[in-house]
Write a protein that binds this DNA or RNA. Structure first.
Lengths: 162, 162
DNA sequence: CGAAATTCGTATCAGATGTTACTATTATCT
DNA sequence: AGATAATAGTAACATCTGATACGAATTTCG
C-alpha cells in the first residue's frame, strides 16, 4: 500500500509526519465565510459610506425605518443585530444630522420612538435603489439556481446556529 | 385588474404607495451574509478565545504557522487577510506568551521571520482538532451536497469580487 | 559611490467600540 | 401604598482599532 498523505500537500504531510493534525486556513469554512462577508461588506459600504457618510450601524437603522414609519428604539436591536449601545449611538448620529426624529412613548416615558424626518425619507429613497443595485451586481456572478441554493443553505445554517 | 402590491407585505406596499422603493433588511443578501458570518465567527471563537485567550488575529497567525515552519511577517498579511498593523500586534501578542519566536532575516535585516516555539506547536496541536471539530459540527446541519454547493458558490462569489 | 526612493515593521495618536454603572421610569410584590 | 425589582437608554471609562508618520535597512538611479 502507498504511504499515507499521498493526496495532500507537502505542508500537510509534514505536519502529519510530526504526529499532528493540520488546518489549512484557506480551506477552513469559518475563515472563507468571514473573508467573503468582509469583501461583500466593503463592496456594499461604498454605497452608503462614501456617498452618504453613514456607518454600517446607521445604515441598518435607516433600512429598518424605511419599512416602519415609527419604531421603538428597543425593537431596533433585534431587527438589526446591533446591541443597545450601538443602536443608541446610531440613532443619535442620525438625529444629529436631521435624518430621524425621536419622541417619548406616551404610555412609557422610558421608551423612545424613532421615525424618519422628511429629509431622512428623501435620503432613504436615494440610497435604497443604489443598495439594491449593488446587491444585484454582486449576485450577477451567480446563476439564479445558485442564488436560490445559497439563500436556502445560508438560512439553514443560520437557523441551526440560533 | 387588481391593485399593485398584492403579493407584498404591508410595509412594502406602504413604501410603494409613497412612490418609493423599499428594502427588506432581513432579506438583503449582504446583511444575511454578515449576520451568518458573525454567528459562525462567534461559534468558532469559543474554541480559541475562551479556552486559550487568543484573539481572532492571533488565531489566524497561529493557523498559518502550523503549516509553515518559518514565515516572513510580510507574508502573513495576504494569507490571513490582516493588515500589517494587525499582523504586527498579533505576532507581538503571541511572542509575549512564548507561542512564537522571531529573528531577523539574515539577508535583509528589515524582515522578521516568525516560527512556532515548542510551546506554540503544542498549543497548535491542542487547538486544531477542536477547531476542526467545530467546523464539522457547524456543517453537520447541511448535507454533503449542500456543503459542496456552498463551497463552490462562495468561491465563485469571492473570485468575482477580487 | 552617494542621494533619493522604497520597504519593513512599529510607535503614536485619534476615533471607534465594548463594558460597566448609573438615571429615570415603570412594573411587581407584600 | 411603599419598598423592591426590572427595563430603557445613556454616560463614562477602558480597550481596541485604524491611519499617519517615523526609524532602520535596503534598493534604485544619477
Amino acid at each position: 500500500m502507498g504511504r499515507s498523505g499521498v493526496a495532500r500537500g507537502n505542508a500537510a504531510e509534514a505536519a502529519i509526519a510530526q504526529g499532528g493534525v493540520e488546518l489549512d486556513l484557506q480551506r477552513y469554512f469559518p475563515y472563507q465565510l468571514a473573508r467573503l462577508a468582509e469583501q461583500v461588506s466593503l463592496a456594499v459600504a461604498e454605497v452608503y459610506s462614501e456617498r452618504f457618510a453613514l456607518t454600517r450601524q446607521e445604515w441598518r437603522v435607516l433600512a429598518i425605518l424605511g419599512m416602519r414609519p415609527e419604531i421603538a428604539t428597543k425593537e431596533i436591536g433585534p431587527l438589526t443585530t446591533l446591541d443597545k449601545m450601538q443602536v443608541s449611538r446610531a440613532v443619535q448620529g442620525l438625529e444629529s444630522r436631521g435624518i430621524v426624529g425621536r419622541k417619548h412613548h406616551p404610555d412609557d416615558r422610558r421608551e423612545l420612538i424613532v421615525s424618519l424626518t422628511p429629509a431622512g425619507r428623501a435620503l432613504y429613497r436615494k440610497i435604497v435603489p443604489l443598495a439594491l443595485a449593488r446587491e444585484s451586481k454582486l449576485l450577477e456572478a451567480l446563476t439564479a439556481d445558485e442564488v436560490a441554493a445559497l439563500d436556502r443553505v445560508m438560512g439553514k445554517l443560520s437557523a441551526a446556529l440560533a
